[in-house]
Design a binder for these strands. Structure first.
Lengths: 224, 224
DNA sequence: CAAATAGTGTCTCTGAGACAGTATGAG
DNA sequence: CTCATACTGTCTCAGAGACACTATTTG
């Protein structure tokens, strides 16, 4: 038996200009000073793990977890993963609507959204490349059988906006017509508000809110 | 920042006499002395988490993880989950074929398989009720889209035995004829060995081995 | 008007489930 | 023989995907 430091690290994803993006902070102090890292930090002595994740999200990035989604991802505890000594980290996955620019917090010199395709994975601090990959994979998989895609959208959204979420996360084009029918006929996925967009290009679209379903029956299937 | 003890706890499942069963150890020392608990223990100072899980499985129960399956489940770190102080535990899920009776290890007065329906959930040590529930739910879900059911079977098995795994884990009856076609036509799920059972009741059945697939396309669906 | 986006209708193909029917062993 | 289990064939229905078509806006 021995004691270990315990941290939480967050994979915070959003869609910005049709691209899946992750929130990274530039480390201001060693180890890995100057390198990009997932936001995160030490768990408090009397703090539960989800509370620590919510706190770090708020403190280090200025993001208040309101309408988004937060879930535990996995834990990472290789003995040499932190040069300061034994540190076990609990990864969390957060999905958010595109929101105001993040604020750098105490430990971070800078916080910014990065398009996933632009992240220099080999240059991330610690084992954050692995944690990021696990988070993205989890998000991709969960879009199939859960209504989580709506967590990337504001409270009211169009079916077209929801489709763009799927397209950004999966990196594939979807047929707008079949997608529309599928989403609106899957029970509990979305509920119409009766309001409509205006001033956009093309025919106005109805606005929807998230529905009560927690699991999609039938699921949304990724194209082969 | 502070330091915490880190443990692994294992949800070890098998099928015994057509019933989903979990391996529990009777605690020999406080806290929760005399109560049933999940096998587990402290992570070594230079030990990675999966290594600790494999070691505990071997030490505390005599089970060598050979043909089964082991995966990380989730982490639990409520500040008051262990009366001795702050302990964060990483839960692991193991699926095994029915094997020789387990051996009690160092910390455990006794180790035994319990039918899941017979477990007195309210009497489990620590928060192990919650971890057990998460493990069972994970197993139930993964049978749908992964070939993990075969981890409950010995190296060679019949389609009927595989069906009994599904029936035990899901607690539902499945149509043997449709199940047979589904399993044998899902690419990579099982591969025939050319050998056949003998001495059983009814027509001899072909023996199969686990196939190369890691994901089932199409998935096995739980009856509504 | 054209261009763009929203939404509906319809056809075809795959696969799930119901279930009849056949095959082959034990007792 | 009967009984039990293994396997195959066939029908029907739901849902995925392709894609023609209509609806309603902006410019």
């Amino acid at each position: 038996m021995f004691d270990s430091a315990v941290t939480v690290d967050l994979v915070v994803l959003t869609i910005r200009r049709d691209a899946l993006s992750v929130l990274l902070v530039k480390r201001g102090a060693p180890p890995y000073a100057g390198r990009w890292a997932l936001p995160g930090g030490f768990v408090g002595a009397a703090e539960d793990l989800p509370d620590a994740a919510v706190r770090e999200l708020r403190e280090e990035t200025g993001v208040h977890e309101t309408a988004g989604h937060l879930e535990q991802l996995a834990s990472y505890g290789a003995p040499d993963r932190d040069p300061r000594g034994r540190v076990v980290t609990i990864g969390y996955l957060a999905l958010l609507a595109d929101l105001p620019v993040p604020q750098a917090g105490t430990d971070a010199a800078e916080a910014a959204w990065h398009r996933l395709s632009d992240v220099d994975r080999d240059r991330l601090a610690f084992d954050h490349e692995r944690i990021l990959a696990d988070g993205v994979e989890r998000a991709r998989a969960k879009l199939e059988y859960s209504p989580l895609a709506a967590a990337f959208c504001p409270a009211e959204f169009t079916i077209g906006a929801l489709r763009e979420v799927y397209e950004a996360v999966w990196g594939t084009a979807l047929d707008p017509r079949n997608f529309h029918r599928k989403v609106t006929t899957t029970p509990g996925f979305v509920v119409p508000t009766g309001r409509w967009t205006t001033g956009e290009r093309g025919r106005p679209a109805q606005l929807y809110r998230r529905g009560p379903a927690t699991l999609l029956h039938p699921p949304m299937l990724r194209p082969a």
